[in-house]
Every structure is written in C-alpha cells, then in structure tokens.
C-alpha cells in the first residue's frame, strides 16, 4: 500500500498544472491580492479587518475543493478509461487500493498547501493564524475527505473522463461559491452563508477554529456524514471498467 501511495505521489509531482493549482495557487493568490494596497488596509465595512484577513478561509476552500473535486475525479476517471484500474484487478491487489492511495495523496498535498499558505499569512501579512489549531486541522481533514468522497462519487457515476471533468466542475463551482471563494462570504446573503457553513469543506467550522473556539460538532458531524454517505455510495456503485 505504501508503495502505491509513493508511486501516486511521484506521479502527482510530475503533473506541473496539478501541483501549481493544488499546492501553490492559494498562496500565490494571497500574494497577488496582498500586493494591492486597498486590500491590505483595515476597512470598517469588513469590521475593521483587511480584505485579505477575511479572504484566507476562502483560499483554504479553494485548495481543498481543487484537490477533492478536480484532481481526484479526473484522475480516477482517466485511470478507469485507460484500463489502469482494470489491469490492477488482474493482480492480487484490489483496484480500490489505488483510490485510497489517491485520497491519501490528496491529504498530503492538502496539508502542504495549507501549511504553505499559513506560513505566508503569518510571515508576510501578519494575518492571525487559527487560534484553535487542532480544530482547524480536524476541520481541514474532514473537509478534504468529504470533498474527496463527493469527487469519487462523481468519478463513480460519470460515464467517461470528460464528463467526470464536467460534472466535477459544476460541484466545484457550487462549493467555491458557498465557500466564499468568488465573493467573500460577508458579501453573501445570510441564508447562503448559513448553507455554506454546513456544506463541505465546512467553512463554519473553519472560521470557528480560526477565531479560537472548538468547531461546532454539528458542522463536523455534517462533514463526517457527507464523507460516509458519499463514500459508501461511491464504493457500492463504482464501475471498475
């Protein structure tokens, strides 16, 4: 199993576009936004926070959503299309291991991406880091797992790699919208914000842990439930060829 993860990790590193988007993009976006003076000046409309302070949680959403809803379903669907999964099923190792390895690679990439973002937040912009690190970590992990489960569900149901890409993009857009990646969340109407708090990857819990309180178990519970349900349905309905 370790060898499969290691191999998949190497393959991930060899796809420059994947690495750039999943690992570097959120940090680069922060640097670009932070280079604009207006966005790093405290503003009373944001409750005397700077735009970049408020936007960091959205950058975390971008990183997690890309890994779970773009990289994962397109890779898995193309593995099925090319017969990579089928070839696995002729060996003593079940092809499900390859999917598990993909999710683990996502977790590693996600951790690196977010740590990098945090380091730049702290070192360059003096942005407050999460005050409840454990809660933040658990939320990120559950958030990524729930998005990965949704990504696998898309891969399970899409007839081919191209439509997997298309369907995943729709879910990706929704997650990004509710997660405040397009418009900062304080600009969204209240009812959308409430929905967004509960949807994967759990913006509500991310913000709570950022502000220093332990994440609401209800938020985490929803993420765990999505992971469990989507993961189970994906596993049951997955077509290996």
């Amino acid at each position: 199993m370790l060898k499969i993860v290691k191999t998949e990790w190497k393959l991930f590193l060899r796809e420059p576009s994947m690495v750039v988007f999943a690992v570097l993009f959120p940090t680069v976006l922060l640097l670009v936004l932070g280079a604009i003076p207006a966005l790093r000046t405290p503003d009373p409309t944001f409750g005397d926070l700077r735009f970049i302070d408020a936007y960091v949680s959205s950058l975390v959403v971008i990183a997690l959503a890309f890994l779970g809803l773009n990289k994962l379903p397109t890779t898995v669907a193309s593995y099925r299309e090319k017969g990579v999964l089928r070839r696995f099923s002729t060996t003593p190792v079940h092809p499900a291991r390859l999917l598990v390895a993909q999710v683990l690679v996502n977790v590693i990439a996600g951790v690196i991406s977010i740590v990098l973002l945090m380091v730049v937040c702290w070192a360059v912009f003096d942005i407050d880091l999460p005050h409840h690190p454990l809660g933040f970590l658990v939320t990120c992990l559950l958030g990524l797992l729930s998005l990965s489960a949704l990504g696998l569900l898309v891969a399970a149901w899409a007839p081919n790699a191209r439509s997997a890409g298309g369907w995943a993009t729709v879910v990706f857009m929704l997650v990004m919208f509710f997660g405040g990646a397009y418009l900062p969340r304080f600009l969204l109407p209240d009812f959308l914000n409430v929905i967004g708090e509960y949807l994967p990857p759990g913006v509500g819990a991310l913000q709570e842990s950022w502000l220093g309180v332990a994440p609401d178990p209800a938020h985490l519970g929803v993420l765990a439930l999505v992971t469990l349900v989507a993961g189970t349905v994906a596993a049951k309905s997955f077509r290996w060829e």
């Binding site: 393959l11 796809e15 593995y79 090319k82 017969g83 990579v84 089928r86 070839r87």
Partner: peptide, 10 residues
C-alpha cells in the same frame, strides 16, 4: 489485457 494502459508519466 487488450487495450490497457498505464498512467502517462509512470
């Protein structure tokens, strides 16, 4: 297998 490939970059 007939028509079974490996990942491009392996």
């Amino acid at each position: 297998l007939q028509q079974s490939e490996l990942p491009d970059r392996i």
